[in-house]
């Protein structure tokens, strides 16, 4: 089963995993890593490496809160080093798709599911949609 690490500015990642578990139940091989005030790229990269090592092998996807930001830059470094793909701009629908789909799908097929979930997961609803 593919592992996941959610990486964010502050505690967004922990909150997201907590929210996910409220919906999908307790998760294995899913960790949250925070970039805290006063920390830089080097510390964050090290924290991600430790989480990957703790997962004991197998594929890992690195979910980050925003493309181009430090969590994404740190994950990109690990991607270049270890080959773990990065899913930048994660939201709850993407994480849910990951949690529910990772028993059945892996590799590129799983990444495709995540990309689709990201497209479908954000919608704007207006009053006229309901009347």
């Amino acid at each position: 089963m593919t592992g996941g690490i959610v990486i964010s500015h502050g505690d967004y990642s922990r909150g997201m995993v907590q929210a996910l578990e409220m919906i999908a139940g307790k998760q294995e091989k899913l960790a949250a890593v925070a970039l805290n005030e006063g920390e830089g790229l080097a510390e964050l990269t090290e924290k991600i490496r430790e989480e990957i090592a703790g997962m004991g092998g197998g594929d890992v996807i690195l979910f980050t809160d925003m493309f181009g930001a430090t969590p994404c830059n740190a994950a990109s470094l690990i991607c270049a080093e270890l080959g773990c793909p990065v899913a930048a701009g994660v939201n709850l629908p993407v994480l849910l798709t990951f949690a529910l789909g990772r028993e059945e799908f892996e590799g590129e097929a799983l990444l495709e599911q995540l990309a689709q979930a990201s497209k479908e997961g954000f919608r704007i609803l207006r009053e006229k949609d309901f009347i």
């Binding site: 830089g40 181009g68 930001a69 430090t70 830059n73």
Partner: peptide
């Protein structure tokens, strides 16, 4: 800025 290009810098 020792994080160089990052969220705060871009946004």
């Amino acid at each position: 800025d020792d994080r160089l290009i990052h969220g705060q810098c871009i946004v």
